[in-house]
């Protein structure tokens, strides 16, 4: 393998890794904030991509407006989903809530499949058909944009949790719901807000992925990768998720190179098993982080 191939692999691996990190982060956020393991997260990724497709093709907006409007729309959808569908399940057995999110995912997936039957669709981004050439190495600028944008958004989110009062309240609820309630935090609002943010994160992953892979309802399968990334990172922190995602992205692509394309998922899983056997709570996880 030449140096240029190596660079291309790293760039591709990091970009898929940051998508995994975004999806994983959405899962962790919802789980820590509200105790819900949201199995509809993958479908929310697809939903975000389809909404962006709608704004871009049907309404005809430029990429940047599509970007912001989609995040806002999906955040509202996430909030409504929490209020209307998940709130009634507060206090229900854990498994029931998990299966309920599966049902929500199934509904979203089938609604998307039926309402938009194109085999593959995509919307234009300013980076279409561009190619970066650095020292004779071809790099698709989409990959750089995916990685850069996810890192930036995650950075902003970290700042939000540290500095902003609402962000701190979300942190507090995630750490100890009843104590937060006693401190005068309106927990139910924070729940809604948490789901809104995690849905917007899923949509962000969808928007970023689309120019590279196209829109399809099957995009939702990315939830498995996001889940693995989050577990790898310990299922409790933003930073852990990011590192977990990037490691997974790189593992997959190099696993594919050394063991053949069919084995790239398996390579990642086998390594994950080893990591978990050594560190049963992920790389950055701690035993007390276990919530369920």
């Amino acid at each position: 393998m030449g140096f240029s191939d190596f660079v291309q692999l790293v760039v591709a691996g990091l970009s898929s890794g940051s998508i995994y990190a975004l999806v994983g982060l959405g899962l962790v956020l919802a789980n820590k904030g509200t105790g819900i393991l949201n199995f509809a997260q993958g479908e929310l990724v697809a939903l975000g991509a389809y909404i962006a497709l709608f704004y871009s093709i049907v309404v005809g907006l430029p990429y940047w407006q599509v970007f912001i409007l989609t995040l806002l729309t999906t955040a509202i959808i996430g909030g409504i989903m929490e209020r209307a569908l998940l709130r009634p399940l507060l206090g229900a057995p854990h498994f029931t809530v998990v299966v309920a999110t599966l049902a929500i995912g199934l509904i979203i997936k089938n609604a998307l499949r039926i309402s938009w039957q194109e085999a593959v669709s995509t919307f234009s981004s300013p980076l279409d058909h561009l190619m970066l050439q650095i020292g004779g190495i071809n790099i698709n600028p989409q990959y750089a944009w995916i990685t850069g944008c996810s890192l930036a958004i995650m950075g902003m989110l970290a700042l939000f949790f540290r500095k902003n009062l609402v962000g701190k309240a979300m942190q507090a609820v995630a750490q100890n719901t009843s104590a937060a309630q006693l401190m005068g935090i309106r927990v139910s609002r924070i729940f809604t807000l948490t789901l809104a943010v995690s849905t917007a994160l899923a949509a962000l992953a969808g928007i970023l992925m689309t120019p590279v892979v196209g829109v399809s309802a099957e995009m939702s399968n990315v939830i498995l990768k996001g889940f693995v990334a989050a577990i790898l990172g310990g299922f409790n922190s933003l930073f852990g998720c990011l590192i977990g995602g990037l490691i997974l992205g790189l593992l997959e692509i190099f696993g594919g190179v050394y063991f053949g394309g069919l084995f790239k998922d398996i390579t990642a899983f086998v390594l994950l098993m080893f990591i978990l056997l050594v560190r049963p709570h992920g790389i950055f996880g701690t035993a007390e982080a276990r919530r369920v």
Binding site: L37, L224, F227, V228, I231, F235, I266, F269, V270, L272, M273, L276, P280, H281, G282, V292
Partner: peptide, 9 residues
């Protein structure tokens, strides 16, 4: 979840 991921693998 950690067990769930291993069963997924």
């Amino acid at each position: 979840f950690y067990l769930a991921v291993v069963t997924l693998g």
